[in-house]
Design a protein around this nucleic acid. Structure first.
Length: 118
DNA sequence: GCCCTACATCAAC
DNA sequence: GTTGATGTAGGGC
């Protein structure tokens, strides 16, 4: 039988691939904001970045847990903006040295913004 | 200090 | 045209 399972998981677009590549540059113990990624891309909006990350087909390969909001908020994780997934994200970051407090980034110094700047 | 609302902006549905 | 893992600006508690 043909069970058209609503192709939810589409292949990543060129735009998404760019986002993933940048995210992979983020070292451990560092986090980036959607806006920073959008800025690194040169021409994009924070929302577009979030869209790409949410689709993230390269789950373990792309550290989507190192992406937070510019205002220090935690953003989302694995498609969830709230719930146990967020707690997991905070735990992963804390493990890498990124301390969060009350769902907010405690030290903004952990923010990384040196893409491609070798 | 905290939270919410409105508008702007780009990509995907 | 609407939504979305946002951002900035403005207002209220």
């Amino acid at each position: 039988m043909k069970i058209k399972k609503t192709k939810i998981e589409r292949e990543p677009t060129e735009f998404a691939l760019r986002v993933y590549d940048l995210l992979r540059q983020v070292p451990r113990g560092r986090v980036v904001s959607y806006g920073e990624l959008a800025r690194a891309l040169g021409k994009a909006s924070p929302r577009a970045v979030g869209q790409a990350l949410r689709r993230n087909p390269y789950a373990p390969e792309v550290p989507c847990h190192r992406v937070i909001a510019a205002n220090g908020r935690i953003g989302g994780f694995q498609g969830y903006r709230t719930g146990p997934a967020l707690r997991r994200k905070l735990d992963l970051l804390a493990r890498e040295g990124v301390v969060f407090e009350k769902g907010r980034l405690k030290d903004a110094a952990n923010k990384f913004h040196e893409f491609g700047v070798t």
